[in-house]
Design a protein around this nucleic acid. Structure first.
Lengths: 204, 204
DNA sequence: CCCTAGTGAGACATCAATGTCTCACATGCG
DNA sequence: CGCATGTGAGACATTGATGTCTCACTAGGG
């Protein structure tokens, strides 16, 4: 935005185009280049000037998703405090971009080739490291591999994004539901012989 | 299979075609009708005689997935015993078909229309009922809605199918990882003041 | 005020997947 | 041994998305 003034004329805001495309493709992953252009408020010609083709657009979205994941990882400071809280922060940071993630998740075209973006590898390793840390310090169970926990985290994020988009869960519950299921599972926490037990954490 | 002999000539086994298509599309969801035909060992013409088009094929796969889910629900007897064990049985029953489920999951074309197959609705309700039962009898926490838990279950199944297909987790761990994460979450179960605590359930 | 860069609109060719058709062939049946 | 049925192979047209190009227009800079 801020650098827009430096461009001559009403140059297309590449960032805005990407956001629009992400929002549209999240809802309709088969959307046409024409639809993407209209959603961004530009013509197909201009869209094609920015992104050489649908493939280039998807790649750009992938890069955007990777950048946002890495930004979220940095902002969540996953190496500070308890691993549990770090996971909470991480999910909260990623939440706004879960829609894009869900879209990329289904774009298996990105993964079936040999040359899959190394960015995902780095992200996977960062998240895995977080789970490994939690296992090392006794917060997390050790019978679930960090690789699986990482997969599950992104899977739950995508599921939550879908569920919200479909109106099956309230958007405000996104983080809570994702994080709480991942952290604590569905089982009701056992109450160690307390006659009066708090049913569940009331905090919304 | 058994009724094959009743067909004249080497009539195409519709069931076999569906299975092949499911297996292929699970790996490469953009596979061409020609590829699907080759994978099933038949010609494109014959494939097209069985399924009027790609759309019809996907619909048939959807029906197959629904049927398998309902069969799994029935076999798991989700209304017997503890809800926790019922979830375990359900995941174990669905596991063999998780690949197909994962494919259908990404085929959002199936859901964006207005007329989405009511079979999914019935399945959702059955699974939701199971979670609701677990909440009613105190096994499950009540701050996560049954709708979300249902979404999460299928999301985790799809994630696990992907992770196995990509070789990130061992196929034999599928059920355990899915079920244990869903049931217990990632947090290590608290050990109520036992000096010598079993680290984690050893049972594989 | 003129010039230039960037845009929108549309025409046009291309390309891949698909739907449709024909025809030869094989196999089981009578 | 013919016949009928279902199949494989391929040709062909269609369709929809895409890539490419031209051209007029507009808005800002000099």
């Amino acid at each position: 935005m801020s650098h827009m003034r430096y461009r001559r004329l009403m140059a297309v805001d590449r960032e805005h185009v990407l956001r629009s495309a992400a929002a549209l493709l999240t809802r309709k992953s088969t959307a046409t280049m024409d639809e993407v252009a209209k959603a961004a408020g530009i013509s197909r010609a201009t869209l094609h000037r920015q992104f050489a083709g649908r493939d280039a657009l998807v790649r750009a979205l992938e890069a955007l998703g990777i950048a946002e994941c890495e930004a979220a990882l940095a902002a969540a400071r996953t190496d500070e405090g308890s691993a549990t809280d770090a996971v909470r922060r991480l999910v909260a940071e990623i939440e706004p971009h879960a829609g894009l993630l869900a879209f990329l998740y289904t774009e298996n075209q990105l993964f079936e080739g040999e040359e899959q973006n190394e960015g995902w590898t780095r992200i996977d390793e960062s998240v895995s490291a977080l789970f490994r840390r939690g296992q090392s310090n006794g917060e997390f169970r050790i019978d679930l591999t960090p690789a699986w926990l990482t997969e599950a985290l992104f899977g739950l994020l995508a599921s939550a994004a879908w569920a919200v988009a479909e109106g099956r869960v309230a958007p405000k519950d996104f983080t809570h539901m994702t994080v709480e299921l991942l952290i604590g599972g569905v089982r009701r926490p056992e109450e160690p012989a307390l006659p009066e037990a708090p049913a569940a954490r009331k905090e919304s």
